[in-house]
Amino acid sequence: MLKRVHFPASLLPYLLVAPQVIITLIFFIWPASQAVYQSFLIEDAFGFSTEFVWFENFEYLLQDDHYRDSFGRTIFFSAAVAFLSMSFALILAGFADRVIRGSTTYRTLLIWPYAVAPVLAGALFLFMFNPTIGIFPYLLEMVGYDWNHYLNGRQAMFLVIIAAAWKQVAYNFLFYLAAMQSIPRSIIEAAAIDGAGPIRRFATIIFPLISPTTFFLLVINAVYAFFETFGIIHAVTQGGPANSTTTLVYKVYNDGFIGLDLGGSAAQSVILMFMVIVMTVIQFRFIEKRVQY
């Protein structure tokens, strides 16, 4: 039989959590509830006439082929960005972990791109791949490949994926390297004595031991690809050509801030919010079980 313990009522714990609660209320709950409210409205840009329409904005979206297409596109884009940036970061970290001399220089150079703002990363790639004045189309033309991402949707998609992944490699690298360096040397040395080569050591020891980091990065990269790549897409393709790089978050911006369709845009952001909630739940419930801490 448990005995109930009564603590004297105190204001202190409430005071201590208050800042967190207030920040969440102001910066998350309040705008999110505004978005939900707005998604039930059809409103002109200036806000003079407002009509409450319940779920009509959602119905309009769900019957819109272009909106459904941007779902699939966003998932492909996010998966590609997460896979590319994580695998490159893993390879680089694997090598950097083995470097003995000048390791600080390597690390600094590899972390640098993280300091570049997304829109600047986009601008860099835009210059390098500009069909007329860029260096890469010039090189590609030498081998007979015609590059014009203004017209070719697949090339445009490739370009934004590369730009988005490149920018995220640094971040992933940082975490992978830290994870690898926290693995006790004795385990790796023991494996080496047993005759395991670098690749085998990586596959059977290092990679399983850093699986919590991989899981963490998977969540972070998915969120990054969903939301923070906006600046890159805006700078490089602005969603074109023919919508081929319009991801969900770009469409929210485009319909809301360019098209001034506030209700439709709010409905999209509500859908996006639920998607992220569901995605996070799935990741924590199912994928996390395979992670060894």
Partner: peptide, 21 residues
């Protein structure tokens, strides 16, 4: 009205034309 978006729609459809789709 909504002509900014309409121009985008026209851009998209014409780009699909130029791409041969």
């Amino acid at each position: 009205g909504n002509f900014v978006q309409v121009r985008d729609v026209i851009n998209e459809e014409l780009e699909a034309l130029w791409a041969g789709d």
